[in-house]
Amino acid sequence: MRRPVTVLGALALVLAGAGTASAEPPLEVTEQITDQAGVLGTGKPAAERAVADLAAEDDLNLYAVFVSSFDDADPGEWAQDTAQLSGLDETDVLLAVAVGDATYEYGYWVDEDFPLSEVDLERTVTGEVDPRLAAGDRSGAVRALAVQLQDLTAAEEEAEQQAAPWPASTIILVIGGVAVVLLAAHLLSRRRSSTTRS
C-alpha cells in the first residue's frame, strides 16, 4: 500500500496541551461520510452530495471520517488502519480528521495502485483541504477534495487522449476501411479467376 500521509494542523502543534479529546481507535467505515465528532452539522448533506457525484462520474470513492482524537496514533497510520479495516481498494480515498478543542490534525490514505498522481493529490490536500480545515469549514474541505479529484481525473483523461496517436474511433474506422479494401480485392481476384477459366 502507498505510504499514508500525515499532516498536523498548525493549531494542533501550538495548542496540543489545551485539552485531551475523547480518543477513537481506527474503525470500519460503512458510509462515505462518518462524523463521529459531530462537526459537520448542516454541511453534511452537501458533503454527501459531493462524494456521490464523484463516485457517479469518475468511479472514485471518497471516504471522510471525523473523530475527536486519533488515540495518540500517527494520523496517516490511523487512516491506513481504518482503510484496511474497511476493505478499501485502489479506487478509494480516505481522509481522516481529528477535531479537538481549537485543534485539528489529519491524514489521508490511497492504495499504491490509485489511478491519480500522488504529487497532484498531495498538492490538492495541502492547497484545498488544509486551509478549509484550518478555517473550521469541514464540509467545505470534503467538497473541495471531491471537486479536485474530479478535475484531476478529467485532466489525466485529456492527457491520455492527446498522447494517443489516434482516437479509438479513428482506429476502428481505419481497420474497418482496410478490411473492406481487402475483401473487395479478394472478391475481384476470385471474379477474375472465374472469368479466366471460362
Rank of each mutant, 00 (worst) to 15 (best):
Q84D: 14
L62P: 06
A56Q: 14
G100M: 04
V97L: 10
W109T: 01
S69L: 06
Y106M: 15
D53N: 12
A73W: 15
D113W: 03
D59H: 13
E48T: 09
D92K: 01
D113C: 02
R123G: 15
A64C: 11
S117M: 07
Y104Q: 10
V67N: 10
W109A: 05
E57I: 11
V67F: 09
D113Q: 14
L95S: 02
E112N: 13
T91C: 03
V67Y: 09
N61V: 12
V93A: 04
A79I: 03
Q80F: 10
V67W: 03
L95V: 04
E118P: 00
E105V: 11
G76R: 06
V97G: 05
T82N: 04
Q80G: 01
P75Q: 09
R123M: 04
G87T: 10
E90N: 07
W78I: 07
R123L: 12
Q84T: 12
E112K: 12
A98E: 12
S69R: 11
T126Q: 15
G76Y: 08
L94K: 02
A55R: 15
V110H: 12
A52H: 08
G100V: 03
A47V: 04
T124I: 05
A64I: 05
S68K: 13
V93D: 04
L94C: 01
L88K: 12
D74M: 07
A50D: 02
L85Y: 04
P75N: 11
F66H: 13
V51M: 00
T126C: 00
L121W: 04
V65H: 06
F114L: 10
D113I: 02
Y108E: 12
A102F: 14
V93G: 08
V51C: 08
E48M: 06
W78K: 00
F70A: 01
G76A: 02
A50L: 02
Y106I: 09
A55Y: 00
E57N: 06
G100N: 00
W78P: 04
S86N: 08
G100K: 07
D74V: 05
L62G: 05
V93R: 05
L85T: 06
N61E: 11
V99W: 00
E90G: 08
